[in-house]
Amino acid sequence: MINLNNVNLQYENTATLALENVNLKIQPKEFVVILGASGCGKTSLLNLIAGFLFTDNGDITINDHQVKGPGLDRGVVFQKNALMPWLNVEENIGFGLKLRGVSKEERTKEITKVLEWVDLTEFRNNYVYELSGGMQQRVGIARALVANPEILLMDEPLGALDAITRQDIQKVVLSLWQKTQKTILMITHSIEEALFMANKLIIMTPRPGKIHKTYDVDFSKQYLEGVDAGEIKRSQKFVNLKNEILEIIEATS
């Protein structure tokens, strides 16, 4: 369980708080999506949980342990630039395993498993620069999952992709969530993406960055139960909610 208690974050040389009084509890197996305009502190929040960023004001714990830096219990998927361009797909995915001294056979076994999950088996020997943006992101996701972390943190993982690829990967991520039962925290600035993927949707607003509203949504559950994604996104409930959130974001940014 991720627990943030009265977290405040101030950057040097800025007037407003990057995060003001943030309280957040994330239960195991939840898919939490943080949505907000730029400057609302959503990436800072993820970086605090990932252990890339620290604040003395407030408590951040994972399973009651203070976050003291990055750890293998949290896998992180970045928006871009995080793969090793000199390694091929297989070596990229196995990068962390190799660093930790996992044997070659064990590595190959694990890599083969996650390659299937993200549907990249036939590209295992390609270099990452030979892959499309969407495939590169799937490598990033596979690399984070192969270490079997408890929590998956995703920092606008689909932000650099075109709309069509984006929808494909949204579905990939949802099915992986169902398959692996990970706790997922994802950041996005796309309202539709947030609504479609989350089971808990958090709206953040900027200057100072804070949590404005939290929604429990079940569109991802509907999708995983077999309802067509397009049908879900066109449904009245989805559209109404989308408009409601758009109004909040427009009014506060």
């Binding site: 990932a50 890339f52 830096g69 990055p70 750890g71 293998l72 949290r74 896998g75 992180v76 970045f78 928006q79 871009k80 630039n81 995080a82 793969l83 090793m84 990068f95 962390g96 660093l99 930790r100 990033g140 690399r143 984070a144 270490a147």
Partner: peptide
């Protein structure tokens, strides 16, 4: 890129 360094740290690099 900072992301590359951070990614390696998350994967357990010393």
């Amino acid at each position: 890129p900072q992301e590359r360094i951070r990614a390696a740290l998350c994967l357990g690099a010393s």
